[in-house]
């Protein structure tokens, strides 16, 4: 045995490192297979009451701050909300019209029709645990029927994907996280690519051909490839198109329509939800 390993401290330190690597490797395997990882599960069970307590304290503090705001700020917000309601009402009417037309066309063509998604509502109880990862914890787990890979959405569109589930909670990885990759389409031209997180405020739509039909302000939606994330969920809007003449590829920077770090309530959409229509 080498002499430095005879030192008890060094030996114990190395043993801890090896144990850490073994645990890390077992955790990665559990993530891939979608199984629960017992040590993390135990730690999270202990953490839930602490996280929930702080979550309520911060929510109360936020409510208190809102309550004691000056009248001018409330009036400004009121005016902005009225404008938003007006805009959304108009947009809603346009979308309703488009949806009805879509239904008529689908029925005429005897195509498969997507049913309204079966969803589970959930609250974000913790988020942003590390500077390197954009993840969050929601208060619904396997007991509510949530599985690894389920899409997480809010009223503005897709925000992320479930990466791990416990009995009562689930870990969600945001679209903006570097580990995130989702099949996407440019809504106008139906150009398909992969939308990936970069760890910044913007997403990148990559794997597009050199002459891809993509422009600034184009809306990007999920493509439904792989049948994990349902098709047509809004992802964001193109803010910049980058054409690489040497590599012969095109990519686009996309501003996400919703961000995990500024929402409280989300819905989990279960995977593979499309049924044929008669």
């Amino acid at each position: 045995m080498p002499s430095f390993l005879r030192n008890k401290t060094v030996f114990s330190f190395l043993a801890l490192l090896v144990l850490g690597m073994v645990l890390g490797s077992a955790h990665s395997r559990a993530l891939e297979t979608g199984e629960s990882f017992a040590p993390s599960n135990v730690v999270r069970t202990v953490l839930i009451p602490i996280e929930t307590t702080f979550h309520r304290m911060f929510a109360f503090g936020e409510w208190l701050l809102r309550f004691i705001r000056p009248r001018s700020a409330i009036l400004r917000e009121n005016a902005a909300l009225r404008r938003e309601v007006k805009r959304l009402t108009e947009e809603n009417a346009r979308l309703r019209e488009a949806a009805e037309e879509n239904v008529r066309l689908r029925q005429a063509l005897h195509l498969r029709l997507s049913t309204p998604f079966e969803m589970v509502s959930a609250e974000i109880i913790a988020r942003g645990g590390s500077v390197w990862f954009d993840t969050a914890t929601i208060d619904r787990g396997r007991k509510s029927g949530i599985n690894k890979g389920d899409a997480v959405i809010c009223a503005r569109g897709l925000v992320g994907q479930v990466v791990e589930t416990d009995t009562f909670t689930s870990q969600v990885v945001a679209l903006t996280d570097q580990n995130s990759a989702v099949g996407a389409l440019v809504q106008r031209s139906r150009q398909a690519g992969i939308i990936q997180g970069q760890g910044t405020d913007l997403l990148v739509l990559s794997y597009l051909p050199k002459d891809a039909d993509v422009r600034e302000k184009d809306i990007v939606v999920s493509s439904g490839m792989g049948r994990v994330i349902p098709k047509g969920l809004p992802i964001g809007r193109v803010v910049e198109v980058i054409r690489d003449s040497i590599g012969g590829t095109t990519s686009a920077l996309v501003k996400p329509s919703a961000r995990l770090d500024n929402i409280e309530q989300v819905f989990v959409v279960k995977a593979g939800q499309t049924v044929p229509v008669n």
Partner: peptide, 29 residues
Amino acid sequence: DPMFGATLGFAAGLIHGSAVGISLGSFIV
């Protein structure tokens, strides 16, 4: 002492990594 630091570091990595849900091994090491 270093042994206490390393053991507490191990616990810190396990707790923080479990809360984040990704790269547990990196946090612990």
